[in-house]
Write a protein that binds this DNA or RNA. Structure first.
Lengths: 195, 195
DNA sequence: TCATGATCAGCACGCATCGTGCCGTTCCGG
DNA sequence: CCGGAACGGCACGATGCGTGCTGATCATGA
């Protein structure tokens, strides 16, 4: 006789969703330091097997948790003007990356990736490449519209843009503010712009 | 009566040096994963107190160990030509960062810095800033020589150069090869060069 | 010369996390 | 309704953390 005051035991995909959400909650409340599999299972009221059955590694779990909140803030209607669109995209990305739950989860993934080349590759494939790709689409459109020189390796250009911002955010105490973004875009346009 | 076949108990600065060297050795042999204070003390034949008395944090120890091998490969006689000098400096830095013991220790510091803002600030102040500074000196010299535009924020420019390389090295699976460095320098010169 | 205090190695502790194993229960599909 | 998968709970050994304590060793200065 299941007590109606106790939640029924959830399984499968529903459990998975719940676990990812708990991970994000924990990241928000106790930060990167509190993101142990043990703590996540405890908080979720779940046996550790239930976690390990789904993710072989803490990195894998964190990557999935990250994906849960990653794409939400990236939908943006481009206006067609390169400088405006890149600026808006970068501002949104930085804003998302600066506050929980994205910030602690992201930093945890970065840390995890340093000790595991596979996790590093997954991080780049699933997230960093996404941002580079989004940037690449914008600069490609601008190039076709004649706003950028035709002889430019846009893939590399996108990497420079994103890399500079990530570097500052992850490895320096300086904030990625509008001044930084504007400076970066100015340099970019000076190098590759047609005007 | 001290047995001459057993090494005399070392103290003070000598001990400190030995511990840093053990840290680098461990990093070379077992990599980032093996860099626990416990393992370092064990390998050095030393009580853990002897480590904790010197460094309050694993991050502090790693930062000091890093400094031991950091500056060695950076002495380089600039020729006066910006492109050549930057290229040479970046090639050397990347080469040093790619192999042990620098690579595992560096990655350990990066990981540590993600969970501790103080460690992050120390990392930037003691190492990243050093590289930025070295780059800054070169571009400043070039600006005075008229090779770069006069209206450029060189500090920011140096950050872009270094940040791009660090991003690729630390967070992507792509190697920082000559093509990447050349592409970066081409973009830099296109943006800020006077010719 | 010798005493004092700092430094040291070794051991132990309590705590936490990891990854795994086992048990008995709950739930779902056939 | 039954069999098997998923589950919660518990326990285990291993490892690292940071901190005590003890007794030996060393440097210094009186």
């Amino acid at each position: 006789m299941p007590n109606e005051s106790s939640a029924p035991r959830r399984r499968g995909a529903v459990r998975t969703e719940a676990l990812l959400q708990v991970t994000l909650d924990l990241a928000t409340e106790v930060g990167y330091a509190g993101l142990s599999i043990e703590a996540i299972a405890r908080r979720a009221g779940v046996g550790k097997h239930t976690v390990y059955r789904r993710w072989p590694t803490k990195a894998a779990l964190l990557l999935d948790a990250l994906q849960r909140v990653w794409t939400r803030d990236l939908d943006y209607r481009p206006t067609g003007d390169l400088h405006t669109d890149l600026r808006e995209q970068f501002l949104r990305s930085v804003s998302a990356l600066t506050s929980p739950p994205l910030d602690p989860v992201y930093r945890a993934v970065i840390a995890e990736a340093q000790s595991d080349p596979a996790a590093r590759a997954a991080l780049h494939e699933r997230f960093l490449r996404t941002v580079e790709q989004s940037t690449l689409e914008q600069v490609t459109r601008a190039q076709r519209a004649g706003q950028l020189r035709a002889d430019v390796d846009l893939t590399f250009a996108a990497e420079v843009l994103c890399g500079t911002l990530y570097y500052r955010h992850l490895l320096t105490p300086h904030p990625v503010d509008e001044a930084a973004i504007d400076g970066l875009l100015d340099m970019f346009m000076a190098a590759y712009g047609t005007s």
